[in-house]
Design a protein around this nucleic acid. Structure first.
Length: 385
DNA sequence: TTTGATGATTCGTA
DNA sequence: TACGAATCATCAAA
């Protein structure tokens, strides 16, 4: 604390040049007083208190004090001010931002969406309800981390406050015996805060690591496959089999399918990707499924009588309006029924995508060539597109 | 436990 | 960038 050099104890008698000039000594000389001051810390508390009191009352004390002040003024400036606290480091700011983004820094909110991370994360997997468990688990663990973080932070802050108060009091107390300027106390408080900030940074770093670990585990968990709901599968299959000649839903169609099935657009894309490739690989296997859906479509078409499956199937650029006849989707479906059993590679000129990839015409027979119901192709917008 | 089904991911391609 | 193809990982029924 004190920057003044302290001699080894027991303090040797001061050399002659430092001794006060000879004169009528009213009591112990200055050297003796200084020696007593230096020896105070070696004594027992009671003894020291008594001596301290005696020294405080000594008539030479003000003079000694002013000498100490003078010496300190000369030395303190050169010693202090060297290690000023710099601005918060980039690392600390990064940690703060991260904790804020993860919802750890903020106080916990009640109700749904306890954290930004949990609320902002989409819930792929088909069944949002299934994920709620993982979600609540994630939120619970994040909440646990948040609690520990805040509790530790509070502890550190309290310890910091207590220690600061203690040191401040100590310095104020010492200021009665030696010159301690308010600025010096302030600087000391700054040093203490700096030390505690370092500890806080470690705490923040550990918290960040914990959140990252939790997050990665959560993301891994999301990777787990969940079967789509029956409704989602039906919606997707209906679209697929009703647009068999061109099972490439537009973005709008995907969005609508996603909405209807309660899944994400990305999952719709995945599903169609898988479906196309699997259908193409083993069309025989899907015949029964195709029959089921095409029959369903046909029934729906009959029931609705004109609007047909368009009511249940999202529109697609390739399956646009085909006029007043409900043949757009049902047409495909009927064609599917008739052609599934006699599948054979078709000549070029299939659907839209088949032109681009050369893949689909081999799977979904072009209506104009493979379908006995060739007439339908003329009104099937899928084929015509 | 095995096996088929299926959603997700990755990589190459046009 | 969307798609096909291969593959992985998991689910669920047998």
């Amino acid at each position: 604390m004190d920057s003044l050099p302290r001699p080894q104890r027991p303090a040797p008698p001061l050399p002659a040049p430092l001794r006060p000039p000879p004169g009528p000594p009213p009591g112990p000389d200055t050297g003796e007083v200084l020696q007593q001051i230096m020896a105070i810390t070696d004594q027992s508390l009671e003894e020291a208190q008594a001596r301290k009191h005696a020294l405080s009352c000594h008539r030479m004390k003000p003079a000694l004090f002013s000498v100490l002040c003078e010496i300190k003024e000369k030395t303190v400036l050169s010693i202090h001010g060297v290690q000023e606290e710099g601005p918060p480091s980039a690392q600390l700011m990064r940690l703060d931002n991260m904790l804020l983004a993860e919802g750890v820094s903020r106080p916990e909110r009640r109700g749904r969406g306890g954290s930004a991370a949990a609320t902002s994360t989409a819930t792929p997997g088909g069944c949002p309800n299934d994920n709620s468990l993982e979600h609540s688990d994630y939120r619970a663990k994040l909440s646990q981390i948040r609690q520990i973080y805040h509790s530790e932070l509070e502890k550190y802050e309290q310890a910091c406050r207590e220690f600061t108060t203690h040191v401040t009091n100590l310095l104020r107390e010492q200021s009665r015996m030696r010159p301690v300027s308010p600025k010096e106390i302030e600087r000391m408080v700054g040093v203490i805060h700096g030390k505690f900030n370092a500890i806080q940074m470690q705490l923040k770093q550990s918290t960040c690591e914990a959140v990252m670990t939790l997050r990665s585990r959560f993301l891994d968990a999301r990777r787990k496959r969940r079967n789509f709901s029956k409704q989602a599968t039906e919606v997707l299959n209906e679209y697929f089999y009703s647009h068999l000649s061109n099972p490439y839903p537009s973005e709008e169609a995907k969005e609508e399918l996603a909405r209807k099935g309660g899944i994400t657009v990305s999952q719709v894309s995945n599903w169609f990707g898988n479906k196309r490739i699997r259908y193409k690989k083993n069309m025989g296997k899907f015949q029964e499924e195709a029959t089921i859906y095409t029959t369903k479509m046909a029934v729906d078409t009959t029931k609705v009588g004109g609007l047909g499956s368009q009511a249940s199937c999202p529109s697609t650029p390739s399956s646009g309006s085909s006029g007043p006849f409900p043949l757009t989707s049902a047409g495909d479906a009927l064609i599917t029924l008739q052609t599934l059993t006699s599948l054979r590679p078709a000549p070029a000129g299939g659907g839209l995508r088949s032109q681009a990839r050369g893949g689909w015409q081999g799977a979904a027979p072009p209506v104009s060539t493979a379908s006995p119901a060739g007439d339908l192709s003329s009104v099937n917008s899928d084929a015509s597109n």
